[in-house]
C-alpha cells in the first residue's frame, strides 16, 4: 500500500519525465520504422499520382493525441504523392470535425482544393450498411459533405463515384472496433487493399488481421505515428511525444524493479521476524 507522499512522488516523477522533453526538446532516439508501419507507407508510396485513397477518420477527441498525428502524417504523404483523398468518419459524430481540420490544414499547406483534391464526407450511423452502400454508390449515401456542400457535381466524386473498382487503398485510423467491419464489408467484397492505424490499446487485437494478410499494414499508437513522421521526413507532434513516452517507459521499468525489490524485502523481513519468534 502506497503512502500518500509516495503517490505524489510517483506522479511528480512521471510529470517531470513527460514535461522535460517538451520544454527542452531533445531526441531520445530515432523512431526506426517497423515492418507493419512500412506496409502502409510503401503502399501509398507506390501509388501513382491521380489515384484515389480513402482515409477513414474513425476516432474522436478522446483518442486525438495518438491518432491525429497519424492522420496528419498519412495526409501529408498522400498529398505529396498527388493522390486524391476521400475522408470519412463512421465511428461517431464527434470525429468529423477532426477530419475537416486535418484536411484543411494539410490540404491548405500543400495547395490542395476542397472538393477537387479531397473531401470529408462526414458521419453516418450503421457502419456495415454504409460501407456496403459506399462500395456501390457514394453520392446516394452522401448527398452533401461534412461542410454541407452538395456532392452532386463535386469533381472528386465525379472521378470516384463508388469505392469498388475506383479506390486504390483504404486506411482506417480507428479508436474503436471499426477495422473489423471495414475488412468484412469494405475491403474483402470491394477488392481494394487496406491498412489500419489504431490506438496502442487495440494494437494486439488487430495484429491477427495483419498476420492473416487481411490488412497489409498496421500502425499502433503514438510510436507508429512517430515512425511514419520519420518516414516522410517531417517530424511533428508524435516524434515530440515519443521522447516523453520513451523516458516515461524507462521510468516505469525502474518503478517496477524498485517495487518488486521493496515487495520481496518486505516478504523476507516478515519471514525473518517469524523465524525469530519461533
Amino acid at each position: 500500500m502506497l503512502r500518500s507522499w509516495e503517490r505524489y512522488l510517483l506522479y511528480g516523477l512521471i510529470a517531470f519525465a513527460v514535461f522535460l522533453p517538451l520544454i527542452f526538446p531533445f531526441d531520445v532516439w530515432e523512431n526506426l520504422p517497423t515492418r507493419e508501419v512500412l506496409g502502409v507507407y510503401n503502399t501509398i508510396e507506390n501509388l501513382q499520382p491521380g489515384d484515389t485513397i480513402v482515409v477513414a477518420v474513425d476516432f474522436d477527441p478522446s483518442s486525438e493525441p495518438e491518432l491525429y498525428p497519424m492522420l496528419l502524417a498519412v495526409l501529408r504523404h498522400a498529398f505529396s504523392k498527388d493522390l486524391y483523398v476521400i475522408a470519412i468518419n463512421l465511428f461517431g459524430p464527434a470525429g468529423t470535425g477532426l477530419g475537416v481540420m486535418a484536411l484543411n490544414d494539410v490540404g491548405g499547406d500543400m495547395g490542395k482544393v476542397d472538393g477537387e483534391d479531397y473531401v470529408m464526407l462526414g458521419f453516418k450511423p450503421n457502419l456495415p450498411a454504409v460501407i456496403s452502400q459506399l462500395n456501390s454508390d457514394i453520392k446516394e449515401m452522401y448527398r452533401s459533405d461534412a461542410n454541407g456542400k452538395s456532392t452532386a457535381d463535386m469533381p472528386i466524386l465525379e472521378r470516384t463515384p463508388k469505392f469498388q473498382g475506383n479506390i486504390k487503398y483504404l486506411v482506417d485510423l480507428a479508436a474503436g472496433e471499426t477495422v473489423r467491419p471495414w475488412i468484412a464489408y469494405g475491403s474483402a467484397p470491394g477488392g481494394y487493399p487496406m491498412g489500419a492505424g489504431c490506438t496502442a490499446v487495440s494494437f494486439a487485437d488487430y495484429f491477427s488481421f495483419y498476420q492473416s494478410g487481411q490488412i497489409n499494414g498496421l500502425m499502433g499508437g503514438l510510436k507508429a505515428a512517430a515512425e511514419y513522421e520519420e518516414l516522410i521526413e517531417r517530424k511533428g507532434a508524435a516524434s515530440a511525444g515519443m521522447n516523453s513516452q520513451s523516458i516515461v517507459h524507462a521510468l516505469l521499468v525502474i518503478f517496477i524493479i524498485v517495487g518488486n525489490i521493496a515487495f520481496f524485502r518486505a516478504v523476507m523481513a516478515k519471514r525473518a521476524e517469524a523465524r525469530e519468534r519461533a
Partner: peptide
C-alpha cells in the same frame, strides 16, 4: 503473455494521452 502485451500497450496508450495534454499545455 497476450494479456501482458495488451496491458503494456494500454500503459503506452494512457501515457500518450497524458503526453497529448502536456504538449497542449506547453506548446
Amino acid at each position: 503473455v497476450a494479456f501482458g502485451a495488451s496491458f503494456g500497450s494500454t500503459v503506452m496508450a494512457r501515457v500518450s494521452l497524458f503526453v497529448g495534454r502536456a504538449r497542449f499545455l506547453v506548446q
